[in-house]
Design a binder for these strands. Structure first.
Lengths: 336, 336
DNA sequence: TTGAAAGCGCTAACAT
DNA sequence: ATGTTAGCGCTTTCAA
């Protein structure tokens, strides 16, 4: 890499110490106007750029925010992440930070996984999307007092910060909607049971079943791990039940869509023969036929709020713990 | 951040110098077996993790690969990026590197934009998706001898490396397909004209028009900048033409879908009244109604090849320039 | 308003 | 097989 200009070089040419240059660079401490201008001119002339790594090592801050994405699916950047990531990025950049997205494989062995990038000050704070409940890294982050925010995850611990949605209420809303439409036998497609969202939604399903005095059938609860293909398969099994439900509520849109595909493949009409409702409102939801009725999560907003709180915690203007919930909204379309 | 264990601490406890610990850490140079084991035990006991930033500063490598995503759309992580990113990530992790995704705003002012992260050794190499032709940063990377690969971009310069697809052939294939289906009046929706892909596809459209001796009409070429909404609007204008085409070839799927939505909104049937063909084969393409016929780009493979070549260049086993093209494939569905 | 010294935590290069 | 020295490029701290 040619022509590496360092702060020392700039200082030398300006006839000042590196500290003065540093002050100009960071707007820290007083510098005489003319000196500052001279230095700025030289910086421009030499096209000098501070070495971020050296700066991080020395100052222990990087002005970077990391976004951890649990890489479970093959194509992990889906519209769910796209919407949340967009919200985060907006806020973070507004406040002069940069964002970096880290896909990480969920191996429970490498305990270091992403503690090291924070400890090393590669990034100043972390936003973690849809963490697993048994993720050991989170506790390490907390123990190390690393600023972090969990998105779409819930854990009431005083050094855990999260922003989640009102899953219980949302699930009930969906159930009541189906009930109103005449459904009394409702199946539920659960996501990964190691995510609090899944757990909450499943629990709420059971509660709603009781509250609405619905028929209960264990076979109607299918586990598909937020995976479209798995939902496709589980829907097949569901159709084998002697006592067939008339509606499906799925824990996310991708599962709803997978299930719907299977139903249609087997010749059923949606929603006439079986209604289907999803969760999230990803881009695909409005494109499938019939378009998907779903419980909309305000994903972009989720990202924005997470970013705001994280940055405030880093700045020290917000104290831990942050435990927030955003509202959900039923989006009525044509699938149920 | 509590209990910061450094290499010095490990060395002290092991009764050796930091260099010996460093050697154990990096498998560099010889260390007596027992010493190594003792050191490893202490590392485990103290839960020591090397400081990545200090390591980067000293060694000038970070074992990280950056992926630059031009942030033009609001939700920038779409399925196009998802597929490419997935391919990249697979290869990069296989080879012991990590990946980080950087969304960057396309402001031409900040010339530093992403040169600084490489110069600073935050990352060892860069993959850039769909760069603009007038992107000044690329030349800076080249001038600074930064290892980089452009994906879905073409530029024959000896210090530019790219992996692209055979856009010309692909476009012609699509045109011939429409021709075979009886179409003689074919419209074209061009993407952003500051991307080589768009330029190539538009050029190929014109060539095909000539080769197939088709009717020519300037109004049939619409510019929609890879934007679904813009395509929606342009399709409206297209319908105003006195001499209306019978088919649309779009430079990417999102535009094709936007156009299709408008046609359907105006009461036209696709493909009977107007055929529509896209480019890419993103996830949405198979979900829209009618499902989208498209020229499939091997997106995941594109990512894999980009990553392989980049890592080889970093390792010194691959020389610049790398100029590669992957084949395209017509995916026949129901829209044309 | 400016500078000098020290050090962030690690590894390269050269000893031994 | 191991250690010493120096330094990566910056900022912190203290002094002037």
């Amino acid at each position: 890499m040619s022509a590496k200009v360092t702060i020392a070089e700039v200082a030398k040419r300006a006839g000042v110490s590196t500290m003065t240059v540093s002050r100009v660079l960071n707007n820290t401490g007083p510098v005489k106007k003319e000196t500052a201008e001279r230095i700025r001119a030289i910086i421009a002339e030499l096209n000098y750029q501070p070495n971020l790594v050296a700066r991080s090592l020395s100052s222990k801050r990087s002005m970077m925010i990391g976004i951890i994405i649990n890489r479970v699916k093959k194509v992990f950047f889906d519209n769910y992440i796209g919407q949340i990531g967009s919200g985060i990025t907006d806020i973070v950049q507004e406040r002069g930070y940069r964002v970096m997205f880290f896909p990480v494989e969920t191996d429970r062995e490498k305990t270091s996984a992403y503690l090291d990038i924070v400890r090393s000050h590669v990034i100043d704070g972390l936003i973690i999307l849809r963490s697993k409940t048994d993720n050991p890294h989170i506790q390490m982050l907390a123990d190390n007092e690393v600023p972090f925010m969990l998105v779409n995850h819930k854990k009431y611990k005083k050094n855990y910060n999260f922003i989640d949605t009102e899953n219980i209420e949302g699930t009930k809303t969906a159930m009541r909607h189906l009930y109103t439409n005449g459904h009394r036998k409702i199946a539920f497609f659960a996501g990964s049971m190691d995510e609090t969202n899944s757990i909450d939604r499943l629990k709420a399903y059971h509660t709603a079943v009781k509250e609405l005095r619905l028929v209960v059938n264990e076979e109607w609860v299918r586990y598909a791990e937020f995976d479209k293909q798995k939902a496709f398969e589980e829907a097949g099994k569901l159709l084998q039940c002697t006592n067939r439900p008339t509606a499906i509520l799925a824990s996310d849109d991708y599962m709803a869509i997978g299930a719907m595909e299977r139903l249609q493949k087997e010749g059923l009409r949606v929603p006439q023969d079986m209604a289907v409702i999803g969760f999230d409102d990803v881009e695909l939801a409005s494109y499938v036929k019939p378009s998907l009725t779903t419980i909309r999560q305000p994903l972009t907003e989720l990202g924005r709020v997470a970013a705001e709180n994280l940055l405030n915690m880093i700045a020290g203007t917000q104290k831990s713990p942050v435990h927030k919930f955003l509202k959900l909204e039923l989006v009525k379309r044509n699938s149920g």
